[in-house]
Write a protein that binds this DNA or RNA. Structure first.
Lengths: 330, 330
DNA sequence: TTGAAAGCGCTAACAG
DNA sequence: CTGTTAGCGCTTTCAA
């Protein structure tokens, strides 16, 4: 194991003081051209890299950003992580990804770890049922809540989606096509997203003159299996002819149940997903869905992270869009 | 901005030496129960977290693993990152993701950054045309090459896929169904994966008694657009009735071209993808594909990363599987 | 059982 | 223009 190249080792090597090396390497003008050139040449030759640990210890920012996601397989999260990682790279930031599986405990552990490495910011999709963001660990880091928002204790920025209009439109369209038994599957009301989407759905029903049938509503901790199981129930036991999904994971789970319906039955049913993965356009002639502007969310997130001005509780909201690729008439 | 809690601040707080605090917090037995309890209580109360920077500077390992991927939207890379991130979390490791877009320059920058933070290991899908892995930066880090392998200068472990049999089987099946104009799109031969898959394809043709038609072969730097464009050419200009893909991104791109074919034409053509994203089973009654055992790759990768014993140039290979979900007969 | 000193790599603040 | 010192947070080594 070759020893690490440091400014001191270079200095010894050249018979000068390590401060001169430091200055040369950080473009301090107070170094003679001759020595500077010699230093830079030697540093390049030996493959010197500045120790981030030493910088961090001196109090410089670490340029590390933490990203807490339920998973990274769901195409929405994947796309978000993709553009955030790309833009982070362009800005010289490291992106550390921790997956929470929507488990508050995993979330807390990840936050503690990020605190250890002195991440400058944490971007997180808050898990349902987690602590309020008062944790001592978070004091030192900028926090950006994504998609969902927790009851706030501390100032924490949020980048959210306003999907009310899109959801109302989707319900209106389903009603227009003759659907009377429209099921809804969404997150429980511990999260802002759960409350808001459910309210939008109910508003849509009201606008269409349809009653709210509690038997057709399913809210719970959102997950793939939860979406799949409830969709199965709604389509079979509850006799729903249409389903609207209120979450990314839920949507993919519910889609599974939808695709498992006998072909004849499926052609009579309507499915409105949440999020717009590339393949939704290819399935069954095209699935209708609530599309979320993922790139804009990611860019705004980076803007918040890199914003030097600490407007800590800034809150940004981007509109979703109802993508109608055709829905069965009843 | 509240000042950071350190062992010194706790020590001052309690009127003792910071060494005693250090010992108590690292379970050194040489601390009286009374002081130990007081220290632990105070530390918990104040939300003390050990500085990773200080540990790193002392020479302790950083527990940071770097992951370099072309992108993270492709479901194969996403799944790999997902299980690697999950298992890393379980082992107390940080996963830093850098996206390269298969650009060697981005790759080099990412590696330099990871070197700055003293990552203990780098897991990378080598970009086509990049440097040999002799870079001085890599000296200090364990390197694991994923999927593809570069001409080796230095010892670097590899976790690879053996897809020869699966590809040969796929070609055999296409031939059996009457296809005579089978196109192939794959990575160019600068990478091991490009060479091997092309060879397997040609071996498959030979086994089926079909000639190699150079006009039906397309190899280049692999990407989504490359796959889409070449697939379009093969299906139209070259009159291919079937296409076999030799790469994840290529497969999704080629699928785009395939789905763009007029419905009548498409039903006469056969598509064999590479990788098995969840939605391939839902498209067109199910797409056939070469399935790669992504979870096993990820677990092996973690094993290599956490292996204390430096068998540096270890090379692991996992078999792929031809998933036949039905292919058009001609 | 406790404490003091030294050093990991780096730079701000002072000498020369 | 160049060098010395000190200190960021932590643990190892030696001393009390």
């Amino acid at each position: 194991m070759a020893k690490r190249i440091t400014i001191k080792s270079i200095a010894r090597d050249l018979g000068i003081s390590h401060m001169t090396v430091s200055r040369a390497l950080s473009n301090n003008p107070n170094v003679s051209k001759a020595t500077r050139d010699a230093i830079l040449a030697r540093a390049r030759e030996l493959g010197y890299v500045k120790s981030a640990a030493a910088s961090a210890m001196r109090g410089d920012t670490t340029r590390i950003v933490g990203l807490l996601l339920p998973n990274i397989v769901n195409e929405f999260y994947a796309r978000f992580a993709n553009t955030l990682a790309t833009t982070c790279g362009q800005n010289g930031l490291h992106l550390i990804i921790h997956l929470t599986n929507d488990d508050p405990q995993a979330e807390n552990i990840a936050i503690a770890r990020l605190c250890e490495v002195q991440a400058m910011a944490v971007v997180m999709v808050p898990s349902p049922g987690g602590d309020e963001l008062g944790s001592a660990h978070l004091r030192a880091m900028k926090v950006v809540q994504l998609i969902r928002q927790r009851p706030q204790v501390r100032q924490a920025a949020a980048v959210l989606v306003n999907d009310r209009d899109a959801i109302v439109q989707a319900v209106a369209r389903l009603a227009q096509l003759g659907h009377r038994s429209i099921g809804y599957i969404g997150a429980d009301t511990g999260l802002s997203s759960g409350r808001d989407r459910l309210a939008a759905f109910q508003q849509g029903l009201a606008a269409a003159g349809l009653p709210v049938n509690p038997g057709l509503l399913r809210t719970d901790a959102p997950s793939f299996t939860m979406g799949r199981d409830y969709a199965g129930q709604l389509f079979t036991a509850e006799g729903a002819t249409a389903i609207l999904c209120g979450g990314f994971e839920i949507s993919n789970g519910a889609l599974n149940a939808f695709m498992d319906l006998p072909r004849a039955r499926r052609s009579q049913c309507a499915f409105v997903g949440y999020g717009d993965p590339s393949f939704y356009g290819w399935i069954d002639g095209g699935l209708s869905t609530i599309r979320v502007p993922v790139d804009r969310l990611a860019h705004q997130t980076l803007a918040v992270v890199t914003d030097p001005d600490p407007v800590d509780d800034a809150c940004f909201s981007f509109g979703a869009e109802f993508v109608d690729r055709g829905l069965s008439r009843i």
